[in-house]
Design a protein around this nucleic acid. Sequence first.
DNA 1: TAATTTTTTTCATGGCTTGACATAACCTGG
DNA 2: CCAGGTTATGTCAAGCCATGAAAAAAATTA
Lengths: 397, 397
Amino acid sequence: MNAVRSNDPARQERLRALNLELVFRHVLAAEAPVSRTELAAATGLTRPTITRIVEELIAGRLVTETGATPDGRAGRPRMGLTVCRSGPAGLGLDIRTDGLAACVVDLSGTVRHLAFAPFTDTEAPAVLEHLGRMATEAADAAAAEGLTVVTATLAVPGPTDDGIVRTAPSLGWRDVNAGALLAEHLRHLDVHTDVDNEANLAARGELHRDTPDHFLYVSGGLDIGAGIILDRRLMRGSHGWGGELGHLTVDPDGKPCRCGSRGCLQTYASLAAILHGETLPDGLTADAALLTWADAGRPETIAALDTAATALGVAIANVLNLLDIDTVLLGGSFALLSSWLIAGVEAELAQRVLSARWAPITVRPATLGPDAAAIGAAMAVIDRIRRDPTEWLASGR
Amino acid sequence: MNAVRSNDPARQERLRALNLELVFRHVLAAEAPVSRTELAAATGLTRPTITRIVEELIAGRLVTETGATPDGRAGRPRMGLTVCRSGPAGLGLDIRTDGLAACVVDLSGTVRHLAFAPFTDTEAPAVLEHLGRMATEAADAAAAEGLTVVTATLAVPGPTDDGIVRTAPSLGWRDVNAGALLAEHLRHLDVHTDVDNEANLAARGELHRDTPDHFLYVSGGLDIGAGIILDRRLMRGSHGWGGELGHLTVDPDGKPCRCGSRGCLQTYASLAAILHGETLPDGLTADAALLTWADAGRPETIAALDTAATALGVAIANVLNLLDIDTVLLGGSFALLSSWLIAGVEAELAQRVLSARWAPITVRPATLGPDAAAIGAAMAVIDRIRRDPTEWLASGR
DNA sequence: TAATTTTTTTCATGGCTTGACATAACCTGG
DNA sequence: CCAGGTTATGTCAAGCCATGAAAAAAATTA
């Protein structure tokens, strides 16, 4: 693939940046430390070029030498190179249903800091002020390990548009400029702030070495959302409001939905819909209560989960027919309840997805749990530096 | 956008290729002839570099000089440069419901040759042999105008996978290796052959200067398909089987569909569904008959069109909620019937699309008519040469 | 016809990768 | 324990490409 889309003229320095990026991508993708010579063979560049580029990457704290590693063979031992664990880092913030989360991830994708705090207040200014404090603590914790936070990404439960939260029903927010407010609170950190949908970011979090190139991440909770990964990239639609799976129509004459439509998936498969108005036992979250009830064989709960699974299957089948994806990850509360959902979802998919005959479909629970969105948000740093390592190097931090 | 994804090392020659591509893209995008100096200003490259690149583009018949154009001002008049109309061309082939079409498009996107022939036989070998003959005629016609056909793209009514037509119900095809058969018949032409879904290619055909960056193209006919354009690029999913709009579920308990599922859009809005088993008047195609009947006020037809429009609206709303697109083009038979469909579709969209409150949705008929797929298929040459003009230049044709 | 203006081409300069060569560091065998 | 072999990494002149300045070309204007 030689696809290059740039509207800037290519000068000599661009060549250098291109190759630096190429080498860095190889270091990122490598599972074990690689030597300069291996990089030369893998990239097709010559050793001298690799030497020069690696020097630059080390100076910029993107890569470190792990020391000479004699491997028993004759000759000078290879000098291992890995992604630096004390260079730039990403900060992820998440507004969950139960509280706030902050997370720091380094370039290797390792979670280096993770904090959670229950809500004190769900009004936008208070939440963002609280997030600002958590962000500062996280950045300090990161700094103590030699990391420099360069990106801060906020996950919110609703569609966003250039930092503005259009609507977040679970919070009662509407047209809140979370991006600007957050940037205000993080002014002293000098980071690039961004706001995105929780499902998008959780999907990003689930994208790693072991996940396929294309998958659909479904986030279950009070609201249902989805993140679509195509070709290892997040699909975000024209404005970034994509993935509104919760408002796909399952039955055009179904129950009215809060959104003004009828028969949205939401009305069958959100936690509220599955709970069906039943009161929660003390100290249990909705998903935990449902799991307990279902495991105990409570018929109403099992029936509700079955209805939810069928509706989910219908909606997901639509996505799969449209986008030709063959892996589905059930995340959020759906991950916890997956043993009660997967069979029902799979049954609908087998019937409704046209390509299921040729390409088997995999449905499995997501792995990151409730921190998925915060982790995925923090991983923005990897995308950013991977896309343009030169930007970081030029910043000289 | 500086996104560069290349796994090849960047040598000096790549710099040259990158800039050549940049300049060529500017010439392609320009509405009127541009001078070398204008190109220098627009691209940010220097005049000497432009001169050298233009020389190469002219030698490779990608660009031509339109002659000095004195504009009344003092000074040496600018030498106009435009996309060459006698360089590489694309061949598009389409298997329509009523017959076969062949089309040649030059780099400016102008249709230079268009031919149609009714079916003599719908068996795969016969069809591809016939297409081979039409392709040869088209290539000869192109050669007579100085054009060289470099790509041949076949549009088929069904999902394809690496040249193989998985299923084309309207033709009764199943797992037909159309790509290999076509390549066989076109061996003497030395072209790059490709096979894709009719809806995808028609969407590509509708993508031009006046269409927005993101839109959904819906193709109505015996089958219903869709092409999704995001960021001026065709979205094709993981294997390229995306866009199966016809099999999106509109009502999970609806009528059984040929595909084995229930309540597919197909069962409400395909031409067969709208016709409802009524016999066609002699000499009229199904869509023309429906239009005549509807315009004459025939209540059954109007009711069927109304049902179809509602179902279409539900399915399209799903796509829009998922992908955040705000323009819908009704193509194929739906273009002809659009005056009877748009209102119904729009009503459903207004109710069901979450972002409709913030971003108005446009639904309008497609403009290219029945030749859309053949034209879009022929336009593959533009994508190919635009992506990598150096490949063509290196071929030395 | 000469001066002016704008476009296009020519030429020396500097950056980047390359290929050949030099150096460093480890293993094997006498 | 040391010489020779082997592998990894660093150094240097050469070639390619874009740049900036200056020259040449082609029109208008006086």
